[in-house]
Design a protein around this nucleic acid. Structure first.
Lengths: 338, 338
DNA sequence: GAGGCCTCTCAAATCGGTTTGGATGCTCCT
DNA sequence: AGGAGCATCCAAACCGATTTGAGAGGCCTC
C-alpha cells in the first residue's frame, strides 16, 4: 500500500496524511488520530526508499570486515558487531556489511559502498598505522569513525584502547614479579597501529625500570597461534632466554603457552606469559592466561553512538576516545623469581 | 552529479544518457562511447536509491545473527559471513545485517527488515525445529533461504548439513572402535533442529548395532563448554559409565575433554570423545579433538547463490540441499577396547 | 458587513532515476 | 513522388514519499 492509495481510502490528500504521520502541528488532532489508527489497521508504512530519496539521507552505515579477522580471534567480532548493530538500530540506522580480504579488496569494497552511495557514514575496523581507507574517507568528506587509530590522528573520530598503556601495564606487572629478561611477541609494529602501541608501551616500561630493550627479545609475525609457537622457539633457543613473555594478542599467547609446554617448562613457574584481548579461550588455557581485556561490547555500542552523531553533523575531532584497558590476572603470571 | 546535470553537460537528453549507460541498442555506438567516457571522466554513477525506487527491487538481502552465537563457536560465523557477503556482492546484492537476542527480539528484527521494506530477500541462520521466522517469511511471501531446516521443510529453500548422517557416523565410528556404552551430549533436541538430527542419527546407529538407547546416556543442555563439563560429570558418576561420548558441538566436546581430565582419565585411551563442527580450537585441544567438519565457507557461498536466484523468481523447493558431512579423525578417538 | 487572522487542508514541485510512446530525419524501393 | 523501414533521440509519465506555497472556511473585531 502506498501513500496515494492510503490517502484516497481516508478521503484525505497525500499531504495531510504525510504530515499527520510526521507529527506536524497543522493537522487537527481528530484527523491525526484517524490517520494513525488507519495506518495501523491497514498496515501502512511509508516506503523508506522514497523517504530516503527525498531526504537525501540514506540512514545506513557501512562496515567492512577483514576476512583475516580470525587471526585475532573471532569472538571479538561477534560481540562488537552485535552491540554495534543494536545501537545503530536504536538510532534509526541500518548496518550494511561487506567482507573483503585486507588490502586492495578492502579499499575497493569501501569505494563501492561510499562512492556507490549506499551509506552515509562508515565504521572502519582494525585501523593501520598508515591507512588508505582513512585517507579516502577524509578525501570524500564522509562521516566515519574508526575502531583503532592511524599514526596521524587528525580530522577523524575514533575509539581505541590505550595500547601503549596496555603494553606498559603488562610489562610493569612482569617487572614487579621480579623478571628482568622480558620478551615481546606481536604483529608487525611497522604496519598495525595496535601492535606498534603495545610494543612502544613494552619498551617504555623496560626503560623506566632501567632495563635494556634487546632486539633479540622482540619477535614479530602475524598475530596467530602458529606464529606464537614459532616465536617462542626462537626466544627459548637463545643463550640467555627470557623468563617472561608479553604478547600483543591472546592467540599468539596461546601458541606461546603450547611451545613452552613442549620445552618441558612450566608456565607460571619457570616462565610467565601475558596475552592481550581476553578472548574466551584465554580463560580455558592451562594454566589460564593472564591478559588485558578489551570491552568489545562497550566499544561496539560507543562506535554506533558516535557514528550516528557524526551523521548528524557532529565534529569528528570531538569524538576521539582512548580507553584504558584492564589487566586480568590469571595463573600464567603466578611466578615469583628468587 | 545527477543525471540531469550530466545529460545537460553532454548536450543529450536524460533518456538517451540513461539508455546509453544501460546498454540499450537504440543508442548509436558513437553516442554510447561518448557517454561512457564522460561518465568515467566526471565520475557519474546513477543514484542507486532512485534506481531502486523506480525498479521496485531493493537489491538487498538481510541477515539476522543471534547474539547467543558464541555458544556454538564464532569462527563459524566469520567464515560464513565472509563468503556470503562476497558472493552477494558478485551478484550485485547488498547485505544488511542486524543482531538480536534469540526469541522475540529476533522476530522483531526480522519484521523490521521485511515489513519495513529494507530487503527483498532474507537469509535465516540456525533454524529451529518449529521456527516462527520461517512461518512469518512464508506468510509474507518474501524469498528466503535457511541455513538449517525446520521440522516441516515444505515451501522454502535451505542448505543444511545432514545432521543425522553426522550423528550416525560419529556413533558408528565409536562402535567400530569397540565401544558398547556410548553417550550423547548435545543441545535440546526438542527445539534445535541440528541437535535433534544429530541425536536421531546417534540413536539410529545404536539400534542398527543392536545396542540399547539408554536415557541416562543422553544429556541435554546449552551447546556451551560449561555444559559439556557438567554433562560429563553426570555421565561418569553413574554406576556403569560410558566409554565413549559423542557430542553435538565442539564447544561441548571441549568441556567434556576438560572434565575427563579432571577425573584423571585419559581421553583417547580410557574414553573416546568426538565433537562436531571442527572449530579451529578443536585441532588445538589435548589430545586433538576428532570431529565432524562443516564446510562453512562453501555453505556461505551457496546460500548467497541460492538467495540471488530466489530473488530472481526461482522456485524455493528446487533449492533444498542437504550436504554430507566429513569425519575428521584425531587423537581423541585413538582407542582400542579389549 | 468587510477585513483580518486562524486553522486546516491540499495541488504541485521535488528527489534522481527508468520506461513508454512518439517524433525526426534519412535511406531505399516502387 | 510517396511510402515503408530503420536508426536515433527525446518529452513526459512514473516510482513513493516530503515540502512549499496557497486556498478555503470559520470566527472575531470594529
Amino acid at each position: 500500500m502506498n501513500l496515494d492509495e492510503f490517502a484516497e481510502r481516508l478521503g484525505l490528500s497525500k499531504t495531510t496524511v504525510s504530515r499527520a504521520l510526521a507529527g506536524y502541528s497543522d493537522v487537527s488532532a481528530k484527523t491525526r488520530a484517524r490517520v494513525e489508527e488507519a495506518a495501523i489497521a491497514h498496515g501502512y508504512q511509508p516506503n523508506p526508499l522514497a523517504q530516503r530519496l527525498r531526504s537525501g539521507r540514506l540512514d545506513t552505515v557501512g562496515l567492512i570486515i577483514s576476512s583475516d579477522l580470525r587471526h585475532f580471534g573471532d569472538a571479538f567480532f561477534v560481540d562488537l558487531v552485535t552491540h554495534l548493530s543494536r545501537t545503530l538500530t536504536d538510532n534509526g540506522l541500518d548496518l550494511l556489511l561487506s567482507a573483503a580480504d585486507p588490502g586492495d579488496a578492502e579499499l575497493a569494497a569501501l569505494k563501492r559502498m561510499v562512492g556507490g552511495r549506499r551509506v552515509d557514514a562508515m565504521i572502519v575496523e582494525r585501523t593501520r598505522r598508515r591507512d588508505p581507507r582513512v585517507d579516502y574517507l577524509l578525501d570524500m568528506k564522509i562521516p566515519f569513525v574508526c575502531h583503532g587509530r592511524t599514526e596521524d590522528i587528525q580530522g577523524y573520530a575514533f575509539v581505541d584502547m590505550d595500547g601503549e598503556a596496555a603494553g606498559r601495564m603488562a610489562t610493569e606487572r612482569s617487572i614487579a614479579l621480579g623478571h628482568r629478561k622480558i620478551a615481546f611477541v606481536g604483529p608487525p609494529a611497522a604496519t598495525l597501529t595496535f601492535a606498534w602501541h603495545r610494543q612502544t608501551g613494552y619498551a617504555a616500561a623496560l626503560k623506566a625500570a632501567d632495563l635494556s630493550v634487546r632486539d633479540a627479545f622482540i619477535v614479530e609475525g602475524d598475530g596467530g597461534e602458529a606464529f606464537g609457537n614459532a616465536a617462542t622457539r626462537r626466544l627459548l633457543d637463545q643463550d640467555d632466554p627470557p623468563t617472561a613473555i608479553v604478547c600483543a594478542t591472546d592467540l599468539e599467547a596461546i601458541g606461546v603457552l603450547r611451545a613452552i609446554a613442549d620445552y618441558g617448562l612450566a608456565v607460571g613457574k619457570d616462565i610467565s606469559v601475558i596475552g592481550h584481548d581476553d578472548i574466551p579461550e584465554a580463560a580455558r588455557t592451562k594454566p589460564p592466561l593472564a591478559t588485558i581485556r578489551q570491552p568489545h561490547a562497550a566499544v561496539g555500542k560507543r562506535l554506533a553512538e558516535i557514528v550516528s552523531r557524526l551523521a548528524q553533523g557532529a565534529d569528528p575531532e570531538r569524538h576521539q576516545e582512548i580507553w584504558q584497558p584492564e589487566l586480568i590476572e590469571r595463573q600464567s603470571l603466578d611466578i615469583a623469581l628468587d
